[in-house]
């Protein structure tokens, strides 16, 4: 079996009393798009920083691009950190060239890549403007270019879509997919479940430092699918409430997503006796639903 672009083996990291990452293992196959999801403070960024060798794990080991030490392959990794880091007083072109040079690429190659990416992301007119004059969305796109300007084999993006308007988010998604087409392995963390659902081949979810999901979207949805039904009945949610096989109802108004604790067929029989069923569909739960299902109960306990 291939060791993959990233291999994380039983890695733990603790900050004082707080167990940020607890015995997590994960293999990111070469050429895939891997989504890291999880609530705030659950350990996503810590995991990413450990992959980047910015933080050192307390135990376990991490190999990146086949190397046990990230430092050996640092130049092949592009990194977009959670919070943006660009020199405000530098021009866009200069900061991009600087970051590219730090990856050890020759200036000529970097300049060509900068030109290409600025064009792709409609930033060509801004090359000689200072970073401080950019809007937030533009700065984010520049930060993305900084991560890809060295043509990395592995691209790690921490929250690339947060705070972007839909147009810029779309442009950035296209850019990420362009990198994918070029054969780059991509790992990104996000709160945007739609983006994760649409773009990721595999999803990894971390919650309170523990791995709770890991697999292809299909696998995950199958694992959670059997017990959800989307229902439209006369009388709405009131007609469903109280039925024995219902565990919880997510009321959307015109229809309800019902989580079941038993066989959907039994539930349907019960429902027919109570109300006129207009629509009944056994659904794949959205990633959003799965996310909320995992994260919510414990949050209420806290």
């Amino acid at each position: 079996m291939s060791i993959g672009a990233i291999g994380i083996h039983s890695v733990s990291k603790r900050f004082g009393e707080h167990q940020a990452v607890n015995n997590v293992s994960l293999t990111v196959p070469e050429g895939s798009i891997y989504g890291f999801i999880g609530p705030n403070g659950s350990g996503k960024t810590t995991t990413i920083r450990m992959i980047m060798n910015i933080l050192i794990p307390d135990s376990g080991n991490i190999s990146v691009l086949g190397q046990p030490k990230t430092a050996n392959v640092r130049d092949d990794i592009g990194y977009l950190p959670e919070e943006r880091g660009l020199y405000k007083k530098m021009t866009v072109h200069r900061v991009l060239r600087y970051y590219g040079q730090l990856k050890g690429k020759p200036v000529g190659e970097i300049d060509a890549a900068i030109k290409d990416w600025l064009n792709r992301l409609q930033l060509a007119d801004w090359a000689d403007k200072k970073v401080e004059t950019l809007s937030k969305g533009m700065a984010q796109k520049v930060q993305f270019i900084a991560a890809v300007v060295s043509s990395p084999r592995l691209l790690i993006l921490d929250e690339p879509f947060s705070g972007l308007d839909p147009v810029n988010a779309e442009a950035l998604k296209d850019a990420v997919l362009e990198m994918r087409r070029r054969g780059t392995t991509i790992v990104f963390s996000t709160h945007d479940m739609n983006a994760a659902e649409r773009m990721c081949e595999r999803i990894f979810m971390i919650f309170k430092g523990n791995k709770v999901l890991d697999g292809t979207l299909d696998e995950i949805q199958k694992a959670y699918a059997h017990d959800t039904a989307r229902v439209r009945v006369t009388g709405g949610a009131a007609a469903i409430t109280g039925l024995p096989s219902v565990e919880s109802i997510n009321d959307h108004g015109n229809f309800q997503d019902v989580r079941l604790n038993g066989d959907p067929q039994v539930f349907l029989q019960q429902l027919v006796q109570r109300a006129a069923v207009q629509q009944f569909e056994i659904t794949k739960p959205s990633l959003h639903d799965i996310f909320v299902r995992i994260a919510r109960p414990t949050e209420e306990q806290a």
């Binding site: 980047m52 910015i54 640092r74 950190p81 943006r84 880091g85 660009l86 020199y87 730090l102």
Partner: peptide, 17 residues
């Protein structure tokens, strides 16, 4: 301090020691 506050240092440390 500016680099630290604007998280530039994290980008830099992704490239150099």
């Amino acid at each position: 301090i500016e680099e630290k506050m604007s998280k530039i240092s994290e980008v830099l440390l992704g490239s150099v020691t």
